[in-house]
Every structure is written in structure tokens, then in C-alpha cells.
Simulated scan of single mutants.
Amino acid sequence: MTSVYELVHRHVEAALAEAAQHAIPPETVASDLIADAVRVLKTRRSIADIKSELMFVIENLEDRDYEFMRP
């Protein structure tokens, strides 16, 4: 069974490949993916919930060594 991540990842990679054929930079694709993801989220979740999720992603952009998560 395909995971949701695998399904989405496959489509993102296809979008990036198609964009490259048209000389569209990957960061442009990424920005549009974020905008479209927010559009989808707005149909089911509150603005506050979406903000919270986006802030979590922003706050965790840097790779960190979380000692408390080690086995």
C-alpha cells in the first residue's frame, strides 16, 4: 500500500520534472505548492489551525539535534 507521503512525493517530483522542461525554477514550483496546499487546507481547517501548522514547519526549518528524541 502506498503511503500518503509517497503518493504526494511522486506527484511533486513529476511537477518538478515538468517545470524543469519549461525552465521554471523549483522554488517557483514549491511556492505554488504551498499556496495550493493552503487552499486545500482552508476547505477543512480553521485559519488558526493552518497558521499553527505553518509556524511549526517554519520553526523547524533548521536541522537540529533533539537530545530528548534519542533512543
Score class of each variant (00 low, 15 high):
Met1Thr: 12
Met1Ser: 09
Met1Cys: 06
Thr2Pro: 11
Ser3Arg: 02
Val4Cys: 05
Glu6Thr: 04
Leu7Trp: 11
Val8Asn: 01
His9Lys: 12
His9Gln: 13
Arg10Gln: 11
Arg10Glu: 08
Arg10Thr: 02
His11Asn: 08
His11Glu: 06
Val12Ile: 04
Val12Tyr: 04
Val12Pro: 03
Glu13Asp: 04
Ala14His: 03
Ala14Asp: 03
Ala14Trp: 01
Ala15Ile: 00
Leu16Trp: 00
Leu16Asn: 02
Leu16Ala: 02
Ala17Phe: 02
Ala17Ser: 07
Glu18His: 07
Ala19Asp: 03
Ala20His: 01
Ala20Met: 02
Ala20Gln: 01
Gln21Ala: 15
Gln21Asn: 14
His22Arg: 14
Ala23His: 08
Ile24Leu: 04
Ile24Ser: 01
Pro25Trp: 03
Pro25Phe: 07
Pro25Arg: 11
Pro25Ile: 03
Pro26Lys: 00
Pro26Gly: 02
Glu27Tyr: 10
Glu27Ile: 11
Val29Asp: 00
Val29Ala: 02
Val29Arg: 00
Ala30Phe: 01
Ala30Glu: 01
Ser31Ile: 07
Ser31Trp: 08
Asp32Pro: 05
Asp32Tyr: 03
Asp32Thr: 05
Asp32Asn: 11
Asp32Trp: 03
Asp32Phe: 03
Asp32His: 04
Leu33Ala: 01
Leu33Trp: 00
Ala35Arg: 15
Ala37Gly: 08
Ala37Ile: 14
Val40Pro: 07
Leu41Asn: 12
Leu41Arg: 14
Leu41Tyr: 13
Leu41Trp: 13
Lys42Ile: 13
Thr43Ile: 09
Thr43Phe: 09
Arg44Trp: 11
Arg44Lys: 14
Arg45Tyr: 11
Ser46Lys: 15
Ile47Lys: 14
Ile47Gly: 11
Ala48Asp: 12
Ala48His: 12
Ala48Cys: 07
Ala48Ile: 12
Ala48Tyr: 10
Ala48Asn: 12
Asp49Ala: 15
Asp49Leu: 13
Ile50Phe: 06
Lys51Ile: 11
Lys51Asp: 14
Lys51Val: 11
Lys51Leu: 12
Ser52Asn: 15
Ser52Ile: 12
Glu53Met: 15
Leu54His: 06
Leu54Asn: 03
Met55Lys: 13
Met55Asn: 14
Met55Cys: 12
Phe56Tyr: 15
Phe56Asn: 15
Phe56His: 14
Phe56Asp: 13
Ile58Pro: 01
Glu59Lys: 07
Glu59Met: 09
Glu59Ser: 07
Glu59His: 05
Asn60Thr: 13
Leu61Asp: 09
Glu62Ser: 12
Glu62Leu: 10
Glu62Ala: 13
Asp65Ala: 13
Asp65Glu: 13
Glu67Cys: 08
Phe68Ile: 10
Phe68Thr: 06
Met69Pro: 03
Met69Cys: 10
